[in-house]
Lab assay of single mutants.
Amino acid sequence: VGDQVLEIVPSNEEQIKNLLQLEAQEHLQLDFWKSPTTPGETAHVRVPFVNVQAVKVFLESQGIAYSIMIED
C-alpha cells in the first residue's frame, strides 16, 4: 500500500476553509492537484501513505465527502 489520491467534495464554504487549512499543514506533505474553490466541486489531493489515515479521520470528523481516486 502506498500513497493515495483522494477525490474530495466539499459541500459548503466552511468545508472549503477546512480543506485550505489542511493544505497549509506542511508536515502532512499533501499535494493538491486541484484545490477546493467552490462547494460541490471536486478537489484532488495526493496523500503520502504515512498520512492517509490522519487525513481520512480529519475529513470524516468534518463531514467532508471523499473517495479514493487512485490507490498506489
Rank of each mutant, 00 (worst) to 15 (best):
G2R: 07
G2S: 07
D3I: 13
V5E: 05
L6T: 00
E7Q: 13
E7D: 04
E7A: 15
I8K: 00
I8C: 05
I8S: 01
V9R: 13
V9G: 02
V9I: 14
V9L: 11
P10W: 04
P10Q: 01
S11T: 10
S11C: 08
N12W: 02
N12C: 04
E14W: 15
E14K: 08
Q15I: 02
Q15E: 07
Q15S: 02
I16P: 00
I16L: 14
I16C: 06
K17N: 09
K17I: 14
L19S: 01
L19T: 02
L20R: 10
L20T: 06
Q21K: 13
L22H: 03
L22Q: 03
A24G: 09
A24R: 12
E26V: 10
E26T: 15
H27P: 04
L28S: 03
Q29E: 10
Q29F: 07
L30E: 01
D31F: 07
F32K: 02
W33I: 15
W33S: 09
K34P: 06
K34Q: 07
K34F: 05
S35Y: 15
S35M: 15
P36A: 12
P36K: 01
P36Y: 02
T37Y: 06
T37N: 07
T37G: 08
T38N: 09
T38W: 09
T38C: 06
P39Y: 04
E41G: 05
E41A: 10
E41C: 06
T42V: 14
T42P: 14
A43D: 01
H44C: 08
H44G: 04
H44E: 09
V45K: 00
V45Q: 00
V45A: 04
V45L: 13
R46K: 12
R46F: 10
V47P: 01
P48R: 04
P48N: 05
F49Q: 11
F49V: 10
V50C: 07
N51F: 09
N51L: 07
N51R: 05
N51K: 07
N51I: 06
N51W: 11
V52N: 04
V52Q: 05
V52Y: 09
Q53H: 14
Q53Y: 08
Q53C: 06
A54N: 07
V55F: 14
V55W: 01
K56M: 15
K56G: 03
V57S: 14
V57A: 14
V57N: 13
F58C: 03
F58I: 08
L59Y: 01
L59R: 00
L59N: 00
E60V: 05
E60S: 06
E60Y: 04
S61G: 10
Q62L: 11
G63W: 03
G63E: 05
G63V: 02
G63P: 01
I64D: 01
I64V: 04
Y66F: 10
Y66E: 00
Y66H: 04
S67P: 01
S67Q: 10
S67V: 13
S67R: 11
M69G: 05
M69N: 05
M69E: 04
M69D: 03
E71Q: 15
E71N: 10
D72Y: 15
